Simulated assay, not measured.
Amino acid sequence: MRLEFASPIATVDVVLLTLAGGVLSVALFRRDKPPFEGSLALPGGFVHVEEDEDLVAAARRVLRDKAGLAAPYLEQLATFGGRNRDERGWSISVAYIALVPGIDPAPGREVIAVDDLPHLPFDHSRIVEAAVARVRNKASYSSLPAFLLGDAFTLDELQETYERVLGHALDRGSFRRQVEFQGFAEPIPGALRHPPGRGRPAQLYRLAGKRLKEFGRRMLA
């Protein structure tokens, strides 16, 4: 006997994280249609069954269409679902974390510190909270914060980025020893950053392999 089941709404939502004003921040977009029209929310959208090869493809499409960018780092966070999360019906959303070196405010888009968020529609506040907890935890044992930097950075900039994500200062000598030991940042031959004035130029580095490296144990807490 064939059973008929109602199909739930299937969407992806992306927590787009960056550094703005020296703090970890999230990009929010003003919704242009109901429900919650006019409210700031995470960029998201329905899964396009004829277009999206998989959920990662759906998340990348949402980022491209809603934010106009491709994130150098994209990670599946968790699945959120329930009868009451969306007034249009039983809804499932697969949430992703994206990290980008920078994103500017624009019409219909705001970049807000993760610790100063207003209440968000659906369960987006809970999704952001889970994403921030994941990123801060992984920052203590992986190269994850480096994806918030551009293609070239100094070791001082790298340490500053870790400190902004973790929320506390790190010992300069210990941090540099760990970076050297883990080998996830490599010097760019002949590339220096010259500070204004008469300061000493600093060696520029890049993320080795351009992929996440986990250290195996907590190093930077």
Rank of each mutant, 00 (worst) to 15 (best):
D156G: 12
P195W: 10
A70V: 13
E53L: 14
V114M: 02
A41S: 09
F36S: 14
V128G: 02
R83M: 03
R88G: 12
H48K: 13
K138L: 13
D65L: 12
R193V: 11
L117V: 02
Q178C: 13
Y96Q: 06
A152M: 05
A146E: 02
T11M: 13
S39T: 06
L204N: 07
G167V: 06
G82D: 02
L120C: 08
L28E: 02
F153E: 04
V100Q: 03
E51P: 00
L158P: 10
V135F: 09
R85G: 00
R172H: 11
Y205H: 15
V47D: 00
R61N: 04
P101K: 08
S143C: 08
V179Y: 08
L74V: 13
D171V: 03
A27H: 02
E110H: 03
F184S: 12
E129R: 15
I103Y: 12
I103W: 00
N84H: 15
R83F: 10
G21F: 06
E180S: 14
R176A: 03
K210F: 11
G22E: 13
G38A: 07
G197S: 09
P195S: 11
G173S: 11
D86R: 00
D115S: 14
A146Y: 03
A41W: 00
P34A: 10
L149E: 03
P196L: 14
E4D: 07
V128W: 02
A58W: 02
S39E: 15
G108E: 01
L19V: 14
V56M: 05
G89M: 01
G68F: 04
G21A: 09
